[in-house]
Amino acid sequence: MEELIKFTLNGKPVEVTADGDRMLLWVLRVDLGLTGTKYGCGESYCGACTVLVDEKATHSCMTPLKMVQGKSVVTIEGLANNGEMHPLQRAFMENDALQCGYCTPGMILHAYELLKKHPNPTEGEIVNGMEQNLCRCGAHKRIIEAIQAAAQAMKGV
């Protein structure tokens, strides 16, 4: 059923008229053209489609559009602040925490939530926090290092 869904997307209000049962992933990618959010499995197994919904890391492939009514959604395209990259983005670059880069948007957004919960994460907290995000290239070691580096950089910010 078509309905009007209003939410905040990357800091700006948006209105979408669409079937509220459609998954957020496709609405973001196709209707709104934000293709940084990736499809990897469609069934909540991989984390490639992770976005922030009210600051919470959420699998957009299993989130019906109507669930974000009135909420704030942040995708990888919206993480930079006025063109200034988020410390996590910088840390992923500087630590070479990616190879093919396909898992990277989901990794960064999930790490964002992790650092909210644990500003000073132990390695164990990072591993637990990121466990549901898959990376086939095997960038895990450097992703952990990048999250640690970002945590350092974000101190006192």
Partner: peptide, 21 residues
């Protein structure tokens, strides 16, 4: 040397085949 294509990949700008519309 760090990757030359990292910036596109951390900002979501990198276009993979399914991102082409």
């Amino acid at each position: 040397v760090t990757r030359r294509d990292a910036r596109e990949k951390v900002t979501g700008k990198a276009k993979y085949a399914a991102d082409i519309q």
